[in-house]
């Protein structure tokens, strides 16, 4: 994904490609490409990212529609989870002899 400020007007828009490699698995980000409309984006994604049967389903979304958290704000952004060790099973000590828990 790119924060492309220098892109010129005639350049085809950038799209992000997500591929489900087989049913039962989630779509995963595979990469990006340029295309002028959704149909071209899907076909280009097929040709660029699934030439060897790497996928059974493709999502494309224009990169400008993706909003991302900011790495430089990670400390405060992810802070709420930081001190909640009681959310992890290892926080709870079990008496000896307890199995399968």
């Amino acid at each position: 994904m790119s924060d492309n400020k220098k892109s010129n007007k005639n350049e085809w828009p950038l799209w992000e490609v997500f591929v489900r490699s087989k049913n039962g698995l989630e779509h995963r980000h595979f990469g990006s490409l340029h295309a002028t409309d959704t149909e071209m984006a899907l076909k280009n994604a097929r040709d660029v990212y699934t030439r060897r049967m790497e996928g059974v389903s493709i999502w494309v979304v224009e990169s400008k529609n993706i909003h991302a958290s900011k790495p430089e704000k990670n400390a405060e952004f992810f802070e709420p989870a930081e001190d909640k060790i009681y959310r992890h099973p290892t926080f709870y000590e079990l008496p000896d002899g307890v199995k399968n828990m």
């Binding site: 790119s2 924060d3 492309n4 400020k5 220098k6 892109s7 010129n8 005639n10 350049e11 950038l14």
Partner: peptide, 10 residues
Amino acid sequence: AETLGISRDE
């Protein structure tokens, strides 16, 4: 490379 802020055309 585009993720580093340079355009494809450039």
